[in-house]
Write a protein that binds this DNA or RNA. Structure first.
Lengths: 225, 225
DNA sequence: TCGGGTTATTATCAAATTGTTAACGGAAAC
DNA sequence: GTTTCCGTTAACAATTTGATAATAACCCGA
């Protein structure tokens, strides 16, 4: 049903727990990496750039909280989800963890079903494109079928046009800087001129027939109603 | 978005890289200093007290990591952001750097766009006021959507007007000297006459229809109520 | 009240930014 | 092997913005 192209890193010093979690998440379709201690976790995190990191708090060497603190220092891990595994009702730890910016907790012993549920819930929250369809105003953006639906009519956009519109519509109202647009739609490697964006914007406006993309001069573009 | 009164020091022994980085960051409105080796870097850092230091790891004399360690010893550089430039995927160095307290990494070859994005992101993290809504009296300043909301009505300001108002409203009551305003909104590079500020103030007053910007004769302007 | 210094206002011009169109090369489709 | 479509660019038009100059209005103290 879903394309779970999400990477998860698990760090725990107990091999049994590691295996249970790995098995259950892999069965859900996630790509799972493991680490046996804090240092391994940091290394793996940097290498694989996982979307979610599950950290045991009690680990030899660096604790989960220390790992979290170190990772959060880097913007790369700004958006990364982090879940802590704690021994039962360790309130002090929870408070401490909260401050380091964890997204959720799990207390041992772990129920595989609870785990999977929480993980799914977290990702659902992040990937708004839940069922592949992004709703913005009366416009539907179907990522899976790569088309726009406006008032029942299906509209076919070219790839770049589609991605550009999808980006803008992903946060209605937000002004996207030209830089942001280039990064998200064209990637960081390619170098294209500034006019390129304009031309694509124009094509979208033309095909949509709606004035839903506003120009904010000197700043960028935004999608609005 | 253009509160870039930030100073950046770059240290690299390759003149080409130095120039590329300098050019791109200067274009973003940062004030940029350069150094050709570790010792120069330390000297410049002490002299200019930059907000961000970009250090090549491999440099003749002192390496970037050594420079970092030396600087971090002094409380003055406690809060200074540090980014390392490393050869491609040198994980060992990255781990080592992390421990010395770097804030981010860039791997060569450098993409100017990635560089600019990361630098902006770092500063945004420090100056948290960047996104989110700033509430001042019954006026909301929405940085993300780049508009002013007053009594439910959305008001569009030109870029400089917006930045200027955002600056004044960021500290209601505080009198901003003309110099401060110039530095914050126009940056230290650009040179504009004094009347320019007046004109922008006037436009804001006009568009807002409110008397919320007070003149403090001989001193500057302040935002109030 | 007058004068010096400062700010307000206005119109104007230059520069920056974006819009538009056409055209070209290349990839994909036929 | 054509043909079509896409992405990009260049060139130019249109628009908006920002800076300045010139002038009026203001405030304060002498």
């Amino acid at each position: 049903m879903e394309l779970k192209n999400n990477k998860i890193l698990i760090a725990d010093d107990e091999p049994d727990i590691l295996e249970i979690i790995q098995f259950n998440l892999a069965a859900e379709g996630y790509t799972v990496y493991t680490a046996k201690n804090g240092d391994e976790a940091i290394e793996s995190a940097k290498r694989y750039q996982p979307n979610l990191i599950i950290l045991d708090v009690m680990m030899p060497g660096k604790t989960g909280i220390e790992v979290c603190n170190i990772l959060r220092l880097q913007p790369v891990f700004d958006q990364t989800l982090i879940i802590f595994l704690t021994a039962m009702s360790d309130e002090k730890t929870e408070i401490e963890g909260l401050e380091t910016g964890a997204d959720d907790y799990l207390t041992k012993p772990i129920s595989p079903r609870v785990l999977v549920t929480k993980v799914n819930a977290l990702f659902r929250r992040i990937n708004k494109e839940d069922n592949g369809v992004l709703q913005a105003g009366d416009i539907q953006i179907d990522r899976e079928r790569y088309l726009i639906i406006h008032k029942g009519e299906e509209l076919l956009l070219a790839r770049k046009e589609f991605e550009l519109l999808a980006l803008l519509a992903s946060k209605p109202g937000k002004v996207f800087l030209r830089n942001e647009i280039l990064n998200q739609v064209w990637g960081t490697e390619v170098i294209v001129g500034d006019r390129t964006i304009d031309v694509h914007i124009r094509k979208i406006r033309q095909k949509l027939g709606l004035d839903c993309i506003k120009t904010v001069k000197g700043v960028g573009y935004k999608f609005e109603l």
